[in-house]
Every structure is written in C-alpha cells, then in structure tokens.
Write a protein that binds this DNA or RNA. Sequence first.
DNA 1: ATATATTTTTAGTCTTGTCTAAATTTTATT
DNA 2: AATAAAATTTAGACAAGACTAAAAATATAT
Lengths: 220, 220
Amino acid sequence: MTTFSEENYLKAIYHLGNHGQHSVSTNAIAEKIETKASSVTDMLRKLAEKDYVDYKKYQGVSLTEKGRLTATNVIRKHRLWEVFLVNKLDFSWGEVHDIAEQLEHIKSLKLTNALDAFLDYPSHDPHGDPIPDADGNFKKISKIVLSKANENDICVCVGVNDSSSGFLKYLDKNNIALGAEIEILSKEPFDDSMNINVNGKSLAISKLISNNLYVKIRST
Amino acid sequence: MTTFSEENYLKAIYHLGNHGQHSVSTNAIAEKIETKASSVTDMLRKLAEKDYVDYKKYQGVSLTEKGRLTATNVIRKHRLWEVFLVNKLDFSWGEVHDIAEQLEHIKSLKLTNALDAFLDYPSHDPHGDPIPDADGNFKKISKIVLSKANENDICVCVGVNDSSSGFLKYLDKNNIALGAEIEILSKEPFDDSMNINVNGKSLAISKLISNNLYVKIRST
DNA sequence: ATATATTTTTAGTCTTGTCTAAATTTTATT
DNA sequence: AATAAAATTTAGACAAGACTAAAAATATAT
C-alpha cells in the first residue's frame, strides 16, 4: 500500500517525462514537489526499496512497471474526480485541481470504477487531458476530427486527413495552420456545419471541412 | 487546519457521548480508535493545546465548541459521501463505511455544500443516521426506527415499516398502537433485542420488531 | 481506611517524512 | 586535464504519531 507522499512522488516522476524512458533528475522532482533535494533522495531510496523505481545514486530515477501503474492510477483518479466536480457539481475547471489533488489518493478500486461508469467513461478531463484506463493505458485519440469536437471546445490544429492542394489552399486562405487555435462557437445539427473562431476571426465551415481537420482538444 | 488523525480523535470523542456533556475517558477513546491509551494521552494534550478539547489530567476530556464543530463537520461529510455512494454509485450500505472513512477528511467547504445540493439535501444517511448541517445542527429527527433508540429513551409510536397483517396483529395483541408510549428499558447487544415498557407492561421484542416500528423520541 | 486493582500519564524509543549543512560526485569551463 | 560550478547524497536533527514499560493517580473492595 502506498502513502500519499509516495504517490505524489510517483506522479511527479511520471509527469516529468518518465512515461517515455529518459530518467528524471533529483532536482527536477524537488522543484515539482516543492521540497528539498535531500528529501527527494531519501524518498527515492525508499521507493527503490519497494520496487516502484529503478534508482542508482547520482544517475537519476525511472519508474518500474509497478511504479508506472501506480502513477497512472493516481492520475486516472485525479482526472475522473475533476470530471465529476465539473460535470456533476458545476465547478469551474479552474477550481477543481486542489480538490482533485486530495481525492486522487482515495483507495478503492471499486469506487474508481463506479465513478468512471457514473461519468459515462469519459476519455478526457475538463482540461482536455486524457484519462488512462485501469491498466494505465491512454487512448491514443488525443487527436480527433474537428467535427467530433463540441460546442465551446478549444482545439489546436494538429493535422489534416485530406491533403489535396485544394483543401490546403482553403486552410491557408483562412489562416488555419498547424498549431492554430480553434474555438467551436456553435454547431448546426441540420447540416453539421459549425461556426468557429480562428485567430480572432469567426468562420463558418462545412462538414466536409470539419471532417478532414485533425485537432487536439485543449480545454472546454 | 486539522490532520486526519486529529479529526479521527474528535469524531471518536463526539461519538462516545460528548454530544451531551459528560466527559469521555482515555481508555474509551483508545478502544474506539484501536490505539494505546498512552497515544491517546499524547493526542489529548495536543488537542487541548489547539483548543479543540477541554482536558485535565486524569479527569477525562470533552469537546470545546470549536472541537464539536469540527467533529460534526467530519460526520457531516462522512454521511453525505455515504449517501453519494449508495444513491448515485449503487453501492450497498454495507460497503460504504470504509470508503467514507477516507472521504470524510477531504477539505473543501465548497465541495461539501455542492455535494449536499447534488444529493438534494438528504437528512439521513443510508443507515438512517441524521446528517448535521454546516453549523453542526441535527434536524430534530421526526421519525426513527425503534431499534435506533437508546436505552432510557421514551418514544411515541408513529408508524410501521412492515404493514403485513401478521405484524399488525402482533402490535395489536401487545397494545402497541399509534401514539402509544414506549420506554426503552434495556438493549441486548447480542441479538439486538430490547426490553421495553408499553402501557405499564414490560415486553421483550426482537430486532425484527424494533426494525419495523417507527417512533419519535419524546425525552431521554 | 488500607490494600488492591484499574486507569491514566510519563519517559524513552521508533518510523515517516521533512529539513539544514556539509561532503561528494558529476558536469562544465577554461 | 585541472578546476570551478552544479547536482546529488550523507549526516544529523526535528515534528507527528504511535508503541512499550514503568510510574503515578484514582477507584474498588474488603
């Protein structure tokens, strides 16, 4: 069983890039957790002892599979609770973080799964961050087709499905480039067109367009 | 700000009868919290220091107003979360206690109030225990099941839960009618039976009976 | 009322997680 | 390659909470 403190360290290591491979430095963790490097060293030794991390003195640290699973589980709970607070209790997305920071440590697998079901298995939290499943796997679909986005979503353009010159010219003309921020102002159910805001200009786009533009949802 | 441990002690003192006046003994607390008496002494000194309790060596302890408010607030959160788990997440009332034991320590007044509203301001938790308001006041419980009454309570019969003819005949035979006055002489923890006094006659009733009779507490 | 039993407190130790200050290792610079 | 700078670890201390064993206070029984 992990303590709150252990979980916070594992989460920090995960967020500091150890979902990939590269090991994480003591100082980086200290800064993230707002503690002293010496405290981090102490905790790393303990986590290594318990097999949550691979750690060699002076060489940085990385999560073991056990550690990774624990970290993603905490992140899963954090994001599910955020969805609960925003969707069910009408909190604004700005005020949920501190509370979720507490709720993420509640220990009950059954509760987590029941909450997930109650919220209709959300794939993303209110900030647009993906919610891992119970095995720590993230849905790869951080990229969706623009037509799948919802009213009030704010997205970032990350790619196109149709790369014909005609389509790309259209995008150019309207200043829609990779990295462009797109806000969904409204969706018209009748013909699936939508009104969006790009670079401060509003624009009506047809279903044909929105079906061929990949975006990442940033926030809602 | 109170720690989890402090909150558990305050809650224990409250439950051990300090909603009334009489002070609570060190050993009683130790048994309730499942810790050693010496640990209790340490904590009591600390709680007294922080003004949550009145404590004099060897004389037992009682809650200050500040302590009482903290205790009822924890109880409020505990019971609200139980309602959430049972009503919204379909937990059975048997499995909610351990989880609520964790959730009761989440610190956010706004969350507690939002949860209260989300649950439609429940007055009782799934076990029938009353939920105090934010000021620590319990609704003067209009109707409770007889089995919930305590030794020496004097109640008035106000209804039944089971209205089968068999049950009603039993009540008839024993002169238990609406408005009948019932005094709890004793409760037997072993089988949850109780000895009561109705219309001047004493009567032993089983848990089955006391669980299906609604009463209002008149005095104690 | 006095000896005995029970309850409560004290004294000292342990673990967890943190800190500061000093020592050590690694990295960067010349 | 030598040295300065930065990062990391060690050593020693502290606070919170808990424990054991022993001492002190209170309650009980004869």
